[in-house]
């Protein structure tokens, strides 16, 4: 972590099934409550986590979510890192476009999740996998 101090070790949730997506939501909710995010911010973060965990499962072929409370000295937040070693995203700009889908969904997962968080970082390489880091800060 470049800036900020961890408020506790990240908790890892494996994403291998539908039920694991539910577990990611519950874990993120718990950490968001402990970090004292507002109700609306909790809801936004949990929704974003749900979208990204589903992407990790469906497009990445499964992976992990690491959830941690963070502190940058001024405010607290929750950081989640989704990692998979799936096929990667060949055209990132296209994948981040509203309505673009390869999974038969609404195409709002990635673009919508980005709107719901404060920081959004994505690292992807074809045939190697994808790592998405999102942070929601308290106000």
């Amino acid at each position: 972590m470049t800036a900020g101090v961890d408020l506790g070790a990240p908790q890892t949730q494996a994403i291998r099934s539908d039920d694991d997506v539910v577990r990611v939501r519950q874990l993120v909710r718990t950490v968001a409550v402990a970090t004292k995010l507002s109700l609306v911010d909790q809801t936004k973060l949990v929704t974003a986590a749900s979208e990204l965990a589903r992407n990790t499962l469906i497009h990445g072929g499964g992976g992990t979510a690491d959830v941690a409370g963070v502190d940058d000295g001024r405010r607290r937040g929750v950081r989640i890192v989704f990692t998979d070693s799936g096929p990667g995203i060949p055209d990132l700009d296209l994948a981040l476009t509203d309505g673009y889908t390869t999974g038969g969904g609404l195409g709002l997962g990635l673009s919508g999740a980005r709107r719901l968080v404060d920081d959004f970082d994505i690292v992807t390489a074809v045939d190697e996998g994808t790592r998405i880091t999102v942070t929601k800060w308290s106000r």
Binding site: V40, Q42, T43, T47, R115, L116
Partner: peptide, 14 residues
Amino acid sequence: MRPAVAITLVELGL
């Protein structure tokens, strides 16, 4: 629908 859910849905783009 809870207010926070409505706010989030609209921002999500749904």
